[in-house]
Nucleic acid binder design. Structure first.
Lengths: 353, 353
DNA sequence: TGCATGTTTGCATAGGCATTCATTATTTTT
DNA sequence: AAAAATAATGAATGCCTATGCAAACATGCA
């Protein structure tokens, strides 16, 4: 084991500056009671010695690590999540928090991960596309570490949750398809243990029912390839669908490719396709995907604010928030009369549940 | 500011178990000198109190944080980097290291970021798609914090670097295009301050020169849209190219889309397109991109091993390693006779420079 | 039984910073 | 100019764990 070189300490800076160690500490603490002149002396000495305050020692002393634990899944399979990670990282950075990251698979159990966060005394935990066991939720609550879920509904009153209004999203997709006169519709699900997929399906179903229709369902495993295969199965059905709604964009793209390249179907003339998320790729000319946009920035803002608020004031109760998505009309689904591609039907609003 | 609830400490566990605090510490330290019977007593008491060792205090005491700082850029614009992040995160996790993450933009200056890592006394730093000022490299060397660059060549003897052999990759692309009889070739660059783009261009140029050709160059800014626009400009040239090599896959895909959807060109019949990276999308039926594969897993393995080795033994000198890529032949580029789609020309090997 | 090894154990301290408390310097008030 | 209030300072202590050291204990062997 190599010896780590010794870093300059506040005491050494103090000696050089001719002040006490306390003064050095105060010089680096915004709002501390210290004369401007001594602060300058301290900074001067600090610079000379290449002093970096030791955040580890500070954390031990203040009992705040200024670290947020983030768990993220699907980062390689769904371009939506890199967007989320990017936005999260920036927000926390802006707010003076560091990020400790775990990349997991969708089905990975977090009960081994979260304790590692707890060992490092993270100030809060944000879970993306990952679910929380209620035992862990309790444990974190007991230790006073707030948890916020992003894009998963909450299993427990101990955590906050920020989601897109998936049910309404499903309804919007169904409405569009009904208005443009489809008769045989399908839903490509992600997986049956994921609230996003289940809720989108539910809203979709509900709305179709009003028109006396029932979707046929296939499973796309939240992946391009899974959806590609699902589309091929769907087209082999006796009554093959004239519209497919997918639980997310990456699957919608898989379906589109399957329809065009493996099934020789014209989209949207023969089959309409709708996705969910509005990832950047959805706007690419090859796809031009009609989809439900999740307002990432707004959702992230809310989630980050909530988590930081609860860190700073532990009396704040966790909350569940639903954010409405927007229907982004492009050209992968037949247009109802009166609607043109490029139109965004914005119903964005936020509501508490 | 909310009071953080007090966690159980080793002293409390000690009291309950009827041993000293040292014993508790030893019980949680693999390889420490402690009787199995007392270890059991300790674990029992620890479990009863819900004790989590405090990694912050441990870090302060051992002067090792077990944290690796990772900086990653392009995470939303290039699917290659989510793959890299995923692989990195898993590797470090396996090796018992946590990851502190910063997501940055390509041009963001790291001189504000790295000091934050240093404050937290990270054990090592890994930079992906980001460049390092030589001042910072020195600072880290002074403090004994090893740095490893991934996919950027090293500006300084103080850091290690792990790259794909970009020059050879460029040559491979050129060779393929020459063998299949192209006469007017173009290169879509990423940016002129990035070693990857410059080196790929250089190898491409070198090999073309042997055939008396010179590529015309345009700039795609490492993005889908940038490359889309570049392709349109290229096709407007008096001598429009019959082959385009792109500095990465996401740009190749942008070029493909531009050619097919905006320029009505057949690919590969009228124009061949070659990318670099072999991101998952490259294999999608819509694109079927011929490309140079970067062997991510192998590169990451080497990079992680190197960094951890240098952390554990600070006498090890930083090294620069080049890993050969493989030419993955699909159908976005005309095939030379004797070669069929699906073929992978593997020249993979690693060499030190 | 007695001595030499080897193993366990606890005490005491270090690690770097923040913070309380008591003290001193400075400013404001009258 | 004195009194009162405020600001700035340093000494001492706490945060929690790891570890060097010496003492206590256990084991093997003669």
């Amino acid at each position: 084991m190599a010896e780590r070189k010794v870093n300059t300490t506040s005491t050494q800076v103090a000696k050089l500056a001719g002040v006490s160690q306390s003064a050095v500490s105060r010089a680096f603490t915004p709002g501390a009671s210290i004369a401007e002149s001594t602060r300058r002396k301290v900074f001067h000495a600090a610079r000379k010695l290449g002093y970096q305050p030791n955040a580890i020692a500070r954390s031990l002393s203040t009992k705040r690590s200024k670290i947020i634990g983030i768990v993220i899944a699907n980062v390689t399979t769904n371009p939506f999540y890199p967007e989320v990670l990017d936005a999260l990282s920036r927000r926390f950075q802006q707010r003076g928090q560091r990020v400790m990251l775990f990349v997991v698979t969708r089905d990975q159990n977090l009960d081994d991960i979260l304790p590692q966060f707890l060992e490092y005394r993270v100030d809060g935990i944000l879970l993306t596309a990952a679910t929380l066991s209620s035992a862990m939720a309790h444990e974190c609550a007991r230790l006073g570490v707030p948890i916020t879920l992003f894009n998963r509904s909450v299993p427990d009153a101990h955590a906050s949750s920020f989601c897109c209004d998936n049910i309404e999203g499903g309804r919007m997709a169904a409405r569009l398809l009904m208005e443009s006169g489809h008769h045989q519709v399908a839903f490509v699900a992600g997986s049956n243990d994921t609230s996003t997929s289940l809720e989108r399906e539910r809203g979709f179903r509900e709305e179709l029912k009003k028109h006396g229709l029932e979707p046929c369902i296939d499973m796309g495993e939240f992946s391009y390839q899974g959806a590609f295969d699902a589309a091929r199965r769907l087209m082999k059905l006796p009554k093959s669908p004239d519209a497919v709604f997918c639980a997310n964009d990456i699957m919608a793209i898989g379906v589109l490719d399957a329809l065009r390249h493996a099934e020789q179907k014209k989209v949207p003339e023969e089959v309409s396709v709708i996705g969910f998320d509005d990832i950047p790729m959805a706007a690419w000319p090859s796809y031009n995907l009609t989809t439900i946009r999740q307002p990432i920035e707004r959702m992230i803002d809310s989630a980050v604010n909530d988590l930081l608020d609860r860190i700073n004031q532990n009396t704040i109760a966790p909350k569940q928030e639903l954010v409405r998505g927007d229907l982004v009309v492009r050209s992968s689904a037949k247009l109802p009369s009166g609607l043109s591609s490029g139109y965004v039907i914005s119903t964005s609003e936020t509501r508490n549940v």
